[in-house]
Design a protein around this nucleic acid. Structure first.
Lengths: 134, 134
DNA sequence: TCAATTGCGTTATGCTATAACGTGTGGCAT
DNA sequence: ATGCCACACGTTATAGCATAACGCAATTGA
């Protein structure tokens, strides 16, 4: 499977997220890209939609913002299963976590309800190691 | 521990959520309560904030809306640990799930990162049994 | 060539949430 | 009682997040 060729706008948005040290909102991205010709929210949202589809970025539901995917394999944007995020309320850092046992447990839970899972969101808000060490 | 005495607005909002057959947005609640004198979003949001604090309702991050807590014990609004939600994209029904193993697994994951958890969001989007049976 | 698809840009609009101000009330210490 | 404080409330305004609807241009493939 070949890498998806990104359009200019998509590349710009992805790049912005990669260079950010934390999650960004769509409007923050917009502001950062004004010098590159971005004028309207839709330019950002359309790029974000595609990048989400390609699995190159994640959306953090609990804060209406977006982060670049931490995975190294940008070349085959498969499903990499369930991702859990630890989000520091102090510094904004986000760490991406994957866990088989977790996934299995959720699968069982859904199965108990005969529920067909499409997408799973797991977000842990709290304080990271650095910020806890006061 | 005694039941928190709710104010009029809080009771109205909670009642609205209890009688709804799915999650409601703040503005939907507002519309439903116009006949009861509600005029502004803040009246709803303030009530929601308190109800969340009391543990009587939940916020669904992935859809910016709110549901009444499914727990029977409205009388001691303690922390009832982590809650996972299965949200049907077809009919909007939400089922609340609790699971020790899952909680434990999340705790381990956070611990690995030396992350201090404050609040955990787990939301599974998909299709419920009824809606899958086409 | 023609239609279908896709990305793009623009304007306008809608939905979600909070800031900032002032009012009234009830508790409670002085 | 007086003064203070905390809290719920109401209102207006504004901020922040997201999409609808239009039209244009480039690409692809029948």
């Amino acid at each position: 499977m070949a890498a998806q060729p990104l359009t200019k706008n998509q590349a710009l948005v992805l790049d912005t997220l990669h260079h950010a040290d934390g999650p960004l909102s769509a409007y923050t991205i917009l502001d950062k890209l004004r010098d590159h010709g971005f004028r309207a929210p839709l330019q950002v949202y359309r790029a974000l939609d595609k990048l989400l589809e390609f699995g190159l970025i994640h959306r953090l539901e609990s804060m209406n913002s977006f982060v670049a995917c931490a995975h190294p394999d940008h070349h085959h944007h498969h499903d990499h299963g369930v991702t859990a995020f630890a989000i520091c309320e102090d510094c904004g850092q986000v760490t991406e976590m994957h866990d088989e046992a977790m996934e299995e447990r959720l699968s069982v839970l859904a199965g108990n309800q005969h529920f067909k899972t499409e997408k799973t969101t797991i977000e842990i808000r709290g304080h990271c190691q650095n910020c806890t060490a006061e």
